[in-house]
């Protein structure tokens, strides 16, 4: 096990930031902690990294205790911080070289990291001249410059535009292929569904569910929704199609709910009403709604 956490609790005054949290992360696993802002994701990460002292509970990181500051552990973990945590006025390469030197990493290795995160052409650009996505990638490169066994990434894709987010996903996948254990937090459920081997859904300091994303979604036993343009088919006819549990209109689309989409789609194809058809199956957002009884708000 790369990480093993049992009964972790952290309180800030009246606020129970982390409430009896337990989980394990296997070596080489891409583990996501999801939840809205204020769910306790960052605090959990900081406790595991050894930046804060837990009020209760036990943490083993690579078999060692992270608190108090454990110098034997530090070279083996990499922590990505906020996008702005850089030295003043240094270029991308100089940032990597300086952070690398803290771990005794050679200049050449540091420069190679730019390649991994796709910033080789920005080596001589000052950090403050990089775009948000580039800075985020540089920040990840700085966290991984010493080739750690476990990488902690705290909301690496927050505040990025969709294109930059997708570029970063490629970087994260590349890191994972190097066999690293990655623990990452996000409030984008769709992203976690794509990237993570396993996710823990957190809300108000507690872990509500923990499994591979597909398992969580399937466990919902929720209906698949087939959407057609409104008016393609009268509602009562739609309801009569075998396999359709329910049909409804919202003014724009006709929505058919089904647990057996195959025959329903075949029946629609027979009627020649497949134009503009969309199929929407349950997502982690539905899982969150089911677990908390409220809509997901990042």
């Amino acid at each position: 096990m790369a990480i093993s956490v049992r009964g972790l609790t952290k309180r800030y005054g009246d606020l129970l930031a982390v409430d009896d949290v337990s989980f394990e992360v296997a070596e080489g696993e891409f583990f996501g902690i999801l939840g809205p802002n204020g769910a306790g994701k960052t605090t959990t990460l900081e406790l595991v990294e050894g930046l804060r002292e837990p009020d209760a509970g036990e943490i083993r990181l690579l078999g060692l205790k992270p608190w108090p500051r454990n110098s034997a552990l530090l070279p083996r973990i990499g922590v990505q911080l906020q996008a702005s945590s850089f030295f003043d006025k240094l270029t991308a390469r100089e940032q990597l070289e300086t952070f690398g030197s803290l771990y005794g990493v050679s200049k050449g290795t540091a420069a190679d990291m730019l390649e991994l995160v796709g910033l080789a052409d920005k080596a001589n650009t000052r950090e403050n001249k990089l775009s948000g996505g580039q800075r985020q990638r540089l920040s990840i490169a700085c966290a991984l410059v010493h080739d750690p066994d476990v990488a902690f990434l705290d909301e690496p894709t927050a505040a990025l535009d969709p294109q930059a987010r997708r570029n970063l996903w490629d970087v994260l996948r590349a890191i994972r292929e190097r066999g690293k254990t990655i623990v990452y937090t996000t409030h984008y459920l769709d992203e976690a569904e794509i990237l993570c081997d396993r996710v823990a859904i957190m809300d108000r300091g507690r872990i509500l569910a923990m499994d591979p994303p597909a398992t969580l979604v399937r466990g919902l036993d929720s209906a698949t929704h087939v959407l057609l343009a409104q008016g393609t088919l009268p509602v009562d006819q739609a309801r009569a199609i075998p396999g359709v549990d329910d049909a409804s209109e919202d003014g724009v689309s006709l929505s058919l709910a089904t647990h057996d989409p195959g025959p329903v789609l075949a029946a629609l194809a027979e009627r020649g009403t497949l134009d503009g058809l969309q199929v929407r199956s349950a997502t982690l957002e539905d899982v969150f709604l089911n677990l908390t009884g409220r809509e997901y708000r990042a």
């Binding site: 500051r69 530090l74 906020q82 702005s84 945590s85």
Partner: peptide, 12 residues
Amino acid sequence: KQVLRRMRLAPV
């Protein structure tokens, strides 16, 4: 800017 935090997380 959390550079101190980064140093605290490094073996220095």
